[in-house]
């Protein structure tokens, strides 16, 4: 029995459900875009679309990682703090050596180290993902504050800023880069045995174990993979503002979780798709960006985030119950 037959046999009603969900999300994205462009004619300018896509590229990378983690039934609260920590390590190594490659490597390694700590405690010791990543959320933010001594550091090295800061005309180069990352992750998740392991672990960790899969290694690896994506996100974050900030990525983990849930990935593992996460991130990003562009009070944005999250989960549950009857 291969995993491919598993997918086609048992899941066709679920597949239809997911497709309706994607149509619904696309509809909401269109409605939100039209609404905001009426409220502010600048919303649909090429320049703003570039800014919008660039500003959500970080959230996008974190949400991709979060999708893998949530497919295994886990959660990662540390990603936002980790953006600040990895950025800090990268910037400090860059400013002390002056070699951008070392800065990149340091940022990626730092982020993956936090990811490995998460993965080790969650995958090997079977501790609660919520608690472990709550601890590393504090740890990474604390380390970021220590590294920066609670102050931001300006970065002038053009190579280090290239990924996050460069645009060709109005078109930020980070967009094709993120698209490339997405394509690579799709291949990993849908075309490899590893990807099937991720789904298997989330569907039932014991069955995956019985099938001879190394469930604990898969769990460790998704946290390290997320660490890698966080490291890239950290480099983009530094590039966007030309400086390293100790409070970068604050509460971004909640935004990423919200976007992934909007995209239809289950909090309990085993169900969801990367494509859904793209739609979730787009919808969330358009709404937040639109609110900022129309000058909405930031506290009202927070209230709206809460209402969106609750609204979508409610609609989800009700529609699932309808289709189950």
């Amino acid at each position: 029995m291969t995993a491919a037959t598993l997918n086609t046999e048992g899941q066709s009603p679920k597949k239809i459900q997911l497709n309706t969900r994607y149509m619904f999300l696309i509809g909401l994205i269109v409605v939100a875009s039209v609404g905001f462009s009426i409220a502010n004619p600048n919303f649909f300018s090429i320049a703003n679309i570039g800014i919008l896509l660039r500003s959500i590229s970080v959230l996008f990378l974190l949400s991709m990682g979060m999708t893998f983690i949530m497919l295994t039934g886990g959660i990662d609260l540390s990603v936002g703090s980790n953006v600040a920590f990895a950025g800090g390590v990268g910037v400090v190594v860059l400013t002390s050596t002056g070699i951008p490659v070392l800065g990149f490597a340091a940022a990626l390694i730092a982020a993956m180290a936090i990811g490995f700590i998460n993965g080790f405690f969650i995958g090997k010791l079977k501790l609660s993902a919520f608690m472990v990543t709550l601890a590393t959320m504090a740890l990474a933010r604390g380390l970021a504050l220590v590294i920066y001594d609670a102050d931001s550091i300006n970065v002038t090295n053009t190579t280090f800023l290239w990924l996050g800061g460069t645009s060709i005309g109005n078109f930020p180069i980070v967009i094709p880069f993120v698209a490339l990352v997405f394509a690579a992750l799709c291949v990993v998740l849908y075309k490899t045995a590893y990807g099937r392991d991720v789904y298997a672990v989330g569907s039932n960790i014991n069955t995956a174990f019985l099938m001879g899969r190394q469930a604990d290694r898969t769990v460790v690896s998704v946290y390290v993979l997320t660490g890698l994506l966080v490291g890239i996100a950290a480099i983009i974050t530094v590039g966007r503002v030309s400086s390293g900030q100790p409070w970068a990525g604050l509460y971004l983990e909640f935004d990423a979780i919200t976007a992934v849930i909007l995209g239809g990935t289950s909090l309990f593992g085993g169900r969801g798709k990367l494509f859904g996460t793209i739609l979730g991130v787009l919808l969330y990003g358009i709404i937040i960006n639109g609110l900022i562009l129309t000058g909405t009070n930031p506290y009202l944005q927070s209230l709206i985030k809460g209402l969106i999250l609750l609204g979508v989960v409610l609609i989800d549950t009700i529609s699932q119950r309808r289709s189950a009857q």
């Binding site: 959660i75 909090l267 506290y299 209230l303 985030k305 609750l310 989960v313």
Partner: peptide, 17 residues
Amino acid sequence: FIVTLSTLFMATGLSGL
């Protein structure tokens, strides 16, 4: 987790409003 995350967002928002 989701329900109280959304009330967290709402409480934060209402505090400032």
